[in-house]
Amino acid sequence: MTGAHRRLASALSGAAIAVLAAGLTTAHAAAPRSVPQGAEVTALAFDGASRTLLKTTADALYRSVDQGRDWTRLPLPAAARRGHIAAVAVSARGKGVLYLAGPGIGVLRSDDGGQHWSPRNQGLPGREVVALAAHADQPGTLYAYVSSHGIYRSENGGGHWRLMDRGPRTDILQLIHSNMPGSMQTGWFFAATAKGVSRSMDCFCGWRDAGGLGRGVRAVAYDPGQPRRVYAATGEGLFLSTNGGEQWVRVNAPAAKVVALAVTRSGALYAAAPDGALFRSVDQARTWEAAGA
């Protein structure tokens, strides 16, 4: 865990207690815990091609093919144990190509749905990859954020990386690529940072604060079916923007603290609590149910 992660985690934890005390979150029956106790979920992703949910902790990757009811731990190479898994990404149009990244790990790629992995770090300045995003439409295009360096792009599935941009002023904690219309190039980035959500076109034409959330954001996700619909999990609850991050409204959160988000092609929103409990909403976070229940 990087210093920035630790600082944000601490801030979010304190804020979550305050929010819970204020009764702002939706009380919910406990969802079945599916990762070892104490192992915090670090990322969620959905592979639309295989209808598979993916979930990571600092040292493990899990897969569910039944909407989160049952989870299978996938094998990881030794390289994944040398750091902290922070991100999992699915190649656009699927076909079993997955990427895993984190500080100390760099980037790993699997071509068979997570059974075998190989490093993909050529061109990166080190292994301190804090965030990783797959392009929404281009199968070979990836973006990796490396602490103190910036955002690197690969257009050949991680075969080679190139520095594209320094990134926003505040360190990126999570990065997604969206095919929301209106970009000069092919899409947009949304970055979770300790100060809110930062947004940039993927031409790297400048980062802007998206909507002035003004608080630490732990996770951000967008709805592939309605790309202007963006969710942000903060220490003070869950927020939804329906206009690409210009304005945010608080929506119901399924737990006092949400640490990871993913949205399926059909618009189902998944949210993970730190202890691994996973929740699902099919009505834009109005109501929640325990995933797999």
Binding site: D165, P181, G182, Q185, C203, C205, G206, G244
Partner: peptide
């Protein structure tokens, strides 16, 4: 940041313009 963009993109933006959404 103009130097970050390929010829094709720069050409398209000059020819067609662009509206910030």
């Amino acid at each position: 940041h103009t130097w970050k963009h390929g010829d094709g993109m720069l050409y398209r933006i000059v020819r067609d313009g662009w509206r910030d959404p």
